[in-house]
Design a protein around this nucleic acid. Structure first.
Lengths: 341, 341
DNA sequence: TTGAAAGCGGTACCAT
DNA sequence: ATGGTACCGCTTTCAA
């Protein structure tokens, strides 16, 4: 019969009694306040150590009026994309002394309630992509950073470049001689996708061309399924909303006995690890930096009022991080030196 | 001069005053206690709505003595592996009403302090892989689940099968006629890797063979670098600790002008998306289920004491989830029907 | 330098 | 059914 391992945690009162001082003094000593004698400081630390005392976060947060935690809301974590954003976010948040709470909205029943609940647990939060509507965002009463999502009045927003690079991509594909284009993805579904489609069309317009958009979920299987139909009468180039879709298309093309890029050019977006091995031409984004910047901005927003309550609020920030075309095999035949392995 | 958007949140006291009742009644009404008149219930709800009142999580948690949040500790989120675990974990935790706090230990200075801090913010936590030492685990005074990590006395542990499937893999490779093996990975670095190496050796032993282990980080670049040396005198088969390493090897082999699997067989572990496109033979694990189970167990542990304080603690649980060999091109030439695309 | 006490924002027991 | 009030565990002002 051993003693129970799950013992009740010691409180500041017990430490105080053991050290023979008041709780106020314990608090000061443990926070290295300069108003404590070295002697008492030592006594308190000793008592705390003996009792394995760790201040309760709840008590502390309640008294301080802050959580020392930030939230991040995203659709899911299936592709590497969001994982990378979260990683950059957590890393930077941790450096700045904030824990991170995550919330995925994908298969959730009441997203709005979940987001509101999260808002009650953090000092600020990042909202990625189209996870919650503008009205909800506007109604949240805490520092916010929008990531890869259309701006909302008065809220900081950070994105990666979609349109311009998509236009570049279009130009590149035109250079291969492709004329019949199809965009595979749903511009309605995500702002990023909308931007890519818009950029593609802008690029094609210069050649007097256009491309229909075939809605498609951002998953590999969806890409394969959509391709099965499209490949009966394949276009010259299939521009996919992201790499997962494009990889699905490659699979379907192989099954259909089509050669990429001879019979059909295919491009993606994100530069997943798999894209490299599939020889997929795609677009690379500084995803990690996206998350890191969000965390940094949030930290700034959270502390700016505290630091100087009289300072007028800084105007909402906007930033667009550059993206980069990655040319591989799948978009058309290139002279060897133009290719990247 | 508009009013500040960041207004101070309303408290239960203000709602009480506005509704003309006591805070006790507000609390009851909002939690749908049956001891409140329908009339007052309505009045309170109205007052709460007018003030946009949301109960403070801190106040609530402090009073209830629980966070309604779980933690999860993992090395990083670079590969898809941990992301998938976290995803399964968050999904299930959310269903069970718990928020999720994440903590990555990778580039962190004081891991132990960070883990202890996290412990103070949650009701229970999952610890993945070798992120913290046994002593620290044993010292944590809250419900815990160990994931993909050697058991610690009295703590629940869940893993995926390594040894047995690695032995299967060895047998399969021997069937291809391979005799000279090298294991690429550091058995010291992670318990999963150790298990895979042990299983491989067990399998080779049946043929009177052995395989040296060449330490290597679990990253693609590390695989490429390590392969550059090894490929001067290539073994028959290079068994890699995970897919990222194996993919790095494939890249190196291509650069060296070696054909896989003719000149060299290569295998990985994890079945990343990229593995499929690289034709890499590997092992698939129910990663998501790993995280989901951890969340479920944790929920059970957290609530078992509360539900029935007199119940004797359940013995530490152990579970090993099955894994599955995925045979593709890279391990050797197969008759077509034995292959999986 | 130290202590007493007033919050922080709720929950739930005990009366009425 | 409702109100008063004692916590929950800490920080911080105000006095001494």
């Amino acid at each position: 019969m051993k003693a129970l391992s799950k013992t009740k945690a010691a409180t500041i009162y017990e430490v105080a009694r053991r050290a023979g001082v008041s709780i106020a003094t314990v608090s000061r000593a443990l926070r290295d306040s300069s108003l404590v004698t070295e002697q008492t400081r030592a006594r308190v630390h000793a008592a705390a150590a003996e009792l394995h005392f760790t201040p309760s976060r709840l008590g502390r947060s309640l008294a301080e009026g802050r959580h020392a935690a930030n939230g991040i809301v995203f659709p899911d974590l299936v592709g590497p994309y969001y994982a990378e954003v979260v990683l950059g976010y957590e890393e930077t948040a941790a450096e700045l002394g904030a824990s991170v709470l995550i919330l995925t909205t994908h298969g959730r029943r009441d997203t709005v309630a979940a987001v509101r609940d999260l808002a009650g647990r953090v000092d600020g939060m990042a909202i990625i992509s189209d996870t919650v509507g503008d009205d909800v965002v506007a109604g949240l009463d805490l520092p916010l950073v929008l990531v890869a999502r259309p701006p909302v009045d008065g809220v900081d927003t950070i994105r990666t470049r979609n349109e311009r690079t998509a236009t570049e991509l279009a130009t590149h594909l035109l250079g291969h001689g492709h004329r019949r284009f199809v965009f595979l993805g749903d511009p309605q579904a995500a702002p990023d996708v909308a931007g890519r489609y818009a950029g593609l069309r802008a690029g094609l317009r210069t050649a007097g061309l256009n491309a229909p958009a075939v809605p498609c979920e951002l998953r590999l299987e969806a890409g394969t399924a959509a391709a099965h139909d499209l490949l009966r009468d394949p276009p010259d180039a299939l521009v996919c909303a992201n790499d997962e879709v494009a990889l699905g298309v490659l699979l379907a093309a192989e099954q259909a006995g089509l050669d990429v890029p001879r019979d059909l050019a295919v491009t993606g977006w994100d530069d997943l690890l798999a894209a490299r091995f599939a020889g997929l031409s795609t677009v690379r984004q500084p995803i990690r930096e996206l998350g890191a910047t969000a965390a940094r901005w949030l930290h700034g927003r959270i502390h700016e009022r505290t630091a100087d309550p009289d300072s007028r609020p800084v105007a909402a920030r906007r930033r667009v991080l550059p993206t980069q075309l990655v040319v591989r095999r799948s978009c058309g035949t290139h002279p060897p030196e133009a290719r990247e392995s």
